[in-house]
């Protein structure tokens, strides 16, 4: 039975090229993402489990995990608050120089991170512009974990601003007006109406900022001082292993960072999917 009538459209899609575009995307993902990842796994695959465990549980490396985790955590938390504020100001108010500030938000992405690191180290060193004042009140930033946090926060702030901004822009003003007519004060409107709508985007921004900070190298090493057990971050440990031509050990440490980042991003995505399904139905 011939059921392919000549009137039947061959495809329901409006634009052709699904096969081609998906193919190119997959190829590209394979080349820039999967291939290096495979290389990483292959490199560690040469090790036995005990060797792997020995490398990643080295006390100095473990200390670096701790430092990296808590500095990245504080940096992303700071970015969550400050990034939200920045996005808020950029969306809600009109003021001269707004477009300039908007453009400057991307600066940390455009700037080589090493340049940022050197600049921050200079500014916050004991004799630097900011450092001398902070030093006078007993706060030292350069060569301490505080310096690491500042460097991490600087390089990853755009993640928060750029994820929150579009959501804030798309938020209908009626929701706030409805809340006001129902008698809610400003604080309540923000907590109960605005914030819950922003929350998924903000959390994504914070998570991206966090994972980026976990791997930050260029900006951090110049300001961190890199004292073993005190201000060494994991990416530095990686670098050290590479300098010793111990590629397997470097890969092992890298795989730990990678795993943490992936698990975090996956968890956030899962949670966010559930939350957004509630907002958009189904």
């Amino acid at each position: 039975m011939a059921n392919a009538s000549p009137l039947k459209p061959r495809s329901k899609r409006v634009l052709p090229g699904f096969g081609l575009s998906l193919g190119v995307s997959l190829l590209f993902i394979s080349l820039v993402l999967l291939l290096p990842l495979t290389g990483l796994v292959a490199e560690t695959a040469g090790m036995t489990w005990s060797q792997f465990w020995f490398v990643i549980s080295d006390p100095r490396v473990v200390e670096s995990y701790k430092i990296t985790l808590w500095t990245a955590f504080l940096a992303s938390l700071f970015n969550g608050a400050f990034g939200l504020l920045l996005a808020w100001v950029l969306v809600r108010y009109e003021f001269p120089g707004k477009r300039l500030i908007d453009a400057m938000v991307d600066l940390p992405f455009a700037l080589p991170t090493a340049v940022a690191g050197i600049t921050l180290a200079t500014l916050f060193s004991a004799s630097g512009w900011y450092g001398q004042w902070l030093e006078a009140v007993g706060i030292s930033v350069a060569y301490t974990p505080v310096g690491i946090i500042i460097a991490m926060a600087f390089t990853s702030i755009p993640f928060v601003v750029r994820t929150v901004q579009p959501v804030l822009e798309a938020m209908p003003p009626e929701d706030e007006e409805a809340a006001i007519t129902l008698g809610a004060g400003d604080g309540r409107v923000f907590r109960k109406v605005i914030f819950p709508s922003l929350w998924p985007a903000l959390l994504t921004g914070i998570a991206l900022s966090f994972t980026r900070s976990l791997g930050e190298f260029g900006a951090v090493i110049f300001i961190a001082g890199n004292t073993p057990y005190e201000t060494e971050v994991t990416s530095l440990m990686l670098f050290v292993r590479l300098q010793e031509f111990d590629y397997a050990a470097a890969s092992a440490i890298a795989s730990v960072v990678l795993l943490v980042s992936l698990v975090l991003l996956f968890a956030i995505n899962l949670w966010q999917g559930r939350y957004l399904r509630r907002l958009h139905g189904k």
Binding site: P172, E174, D175, E177, A178, A179, T181, K192, V193, P196, S197, Y275, R278, L279, H280
Partner: peptide, 13 residues
Amino acid sequence: VGFVFQHYALFRH
């Protein structure tokens, strides 16, 4: 006053 909006403005969350 009670206000009803054209596009409902219900709190989606």
